[in-house]
Design a protein around this nucleic acid. Sequence first.
DNA 1: CGTCACATGTAAGCGGTTACATGATTCC
DNA 2: GGAATCATGTAACCGCTTACATGTGACG
Lengths: 180, 180
Amino acid sequence: MAKDRKIDVVILGLLAHEDLTGYDIKKQIDGAISFFWKGSFGSIYPALGEMEKQELVKRKKSDKSSGREKIVYQITKDGKETLKAWLNDEKAINDLKYETLLKMYFGGIQDRSVTIRNIEIFEQQVKENLEVLKFYKGNLEKVLDNEDHVHYYLTVLFGIETYEAYLKWCNKAKKIMKEK
Amino acid sequence: MAKDRKIDVVILGLLAHEDLTGYDIKKQIDGAISFFWKGSFGSIYPALGEMEKQELVKRKKSDKSSGREKIVYQITKDGKETLKAWLNDEKAINDLKYETLLKMYFGGIQDRSVTIRNIEIFEQQVKENLEVLKFYKGNLEKVLDNEDHVHYYLTVLFGIETYEAYLKWCNKAKKIMKEK
DNA sequence: CGTCACATGTAAGCGGTTACATGATTCC
DNA sequence: GGAATCATGTAACCGCTTACATGTGACG
């Protein structure tokens, strides 16, 4: 597994829960995971190919029930060990790149109305995302008997907690910009 | 300016406040900005070179008071306009990549103690960062008469608000992991 | 006198996205 | 029959980091 390529571990993590095709993996990443990680076909398929060679994943004998080609992947014992080793590794890179904050930081050369506008755009996005997360939360609460779901739940709670903090900040920031 | 290269706008933003060398720019980025954006010498120097060609920045006549080579850059009128156009552009990509959340999401295959450990590591980092941000906050509050500083202040408030939310989440998450 | 901070720059490589190419299947 | 979705894969390109190369100035 490539040293700093995390898509491998995302795929491994998803396959640890259930067998999936590359296409399925992409859909999963575009769901709840997309709030803290992203991935495209252009990275998923090559990664699957490489991990197959390394025997971290393997193809399930394709069920020919439907005629269309469809490669279902399964995690191997080695794959599970790789995943566990990563989970046990204390190093975790948490990286935030917020263009909105850049626009706050450098907003001083413009009229304050521009910054207020940028806060409002951000606020709108956050509100929409918060709705989605609350929907996920409601769904997960029905199935918390499953250990994996409890873990998914943690990330959803994280999202809600931070997005609510964002909203609080939006109000504070707008207030400051409207002062004086 | 390259379409999706944001380092240009970071440099422009910093130069709008004061004239700086490439080295100075790097130091600034490693300060308060590092909480929401990063940049290395390997991207700063080439960007400065290209932007000089495009006349978004220019070299200040080097003061030869000290013998060592030192290129101080200044923003041009075109540079300021580019910066303003970007501030007025409603599109803003806000991207979060948290390996810690990935470890939460996929933590189900391991003992809960592993997830708790990962939460604690995260919590420790957040606490340290929060200290730094509070220090920045204290410093900025003394100089809020400057419009740029008010804008810097907004980003520091954002950091504090979200990091405090992270800490709240850490407690919740640890509690859930210790249940049952 | 050695080490650290200052200072500028280049080259290789990496992880990733975007766009393209291709084709089957499902559903209205 | 046409559109949307399912499904896999490749190639070009991009922004960026890491590591390297080089040298000066300040300080204990």
